[in-house]
Nucleic acid binder design. Structure first.
Length: 218
DNA sequence: AAAACGGGGGC
DNA sequence: GCCCCAGTTTT
């Protein structure tokens, strides 16, 4: 990164605090303390808005916040619990599949290495890295659509491939920033650096922006 | 009626 | 690398 990464991080941090909403943060923090919850809520979040995901997760985890309890539920029950998130059939089957896999292979615990996480069905690099960062508090670079879009707009990368963005960040971003990077950028991506019609005129990060791919992402 | 919400996997 | 997947909520 050519620019002052420390300054950028501080800006992101202060912006993040502006976007915090107590109720959402409370649920999110509850999920964060449990790697299994992080894993499952990430699957629920597929093609689903964040508030809906959190509400569905909260309902599901109040019934079962570990693989053993999850396997006591039928697919119908899981479907009903996560219903508003959409794609509930596919998701409920996957949730129970993964629960079974974790019980059979890891005594019901979520593995804490990238390689082992990637062996789980339905888990790719984004999900695996998020489980490491949020579930285990291990430094990892998690590139989701927000991180990927903003890094492209800033000119750090110029690629459609999130894996490439991940590799560049691993190389250029100091490890001490890995834990919070995804969280801050997701918040910024949702509130300011949005996919369509981003709020560039009031953006605090414009000094860092290469101003490419602004109009529309995707 | 149309758009928004995203990541994994198959080829 | 490109395309497919498939359902809700919001506008």
């Amino acid at each position: 990164m050519n620019f002052d990464i420390d300054k950028l991080f501080l800006l992101l941090e202060s912006e993040y605090k502006r976007f915090e909403t107590p109720s959402v943060t409370k649920i999110a923090n509850l999920i964060k303390s449990n790697p299994f919850a992080v894993l499952i809520s990430t699957l629920i979040s597929l093609r689903t808005k964040d508030e809906v995901t959190l509400k569905a997760s909260e309902r599901l985890f109040s019934r079962a916040d570990n693989p053993f309890d999850m396997l006591k539920l039928s697919t119908d029950e899981v479907e009903r619990l996560i219903y508003p998130a959409g794609f509930y059939r596919k998701k409920s089957l996957l949730i129970l599949d993964i629960s079974k896999y974790l019980v059979e292979n890891y005594q019901g615990r979520v593995p804490n290495s990238l390689d082992e996480l990637l062996k789980i069905k339905g888990v790719g690099r984004k999900t695996a890295n998020l489980v490491l960062v949020e579930g285990f508090g291990v430094p990892a670079v998690c590139v989701d659509t927000h991180v990927h879009r903003i890094m492209n707009r800033m000119g750090l990368v110029n690629t459609k491939n999130p894996d490439e963005t991940e590799m560049v960040l691993r190389d250029k971003l100091p490890v001490k920033y890995w834990i919070k990077w995804n969280e801050y950028l997701v918040a910024y991506g949702q509130n300011v650096c949005k996919p369509i019609s981003p709020l560039c005129s009031t953006c605090k990060l414009s000094d860092f922006c290469a101003k490419i791919n602004i109009k529309r992402w995707r």
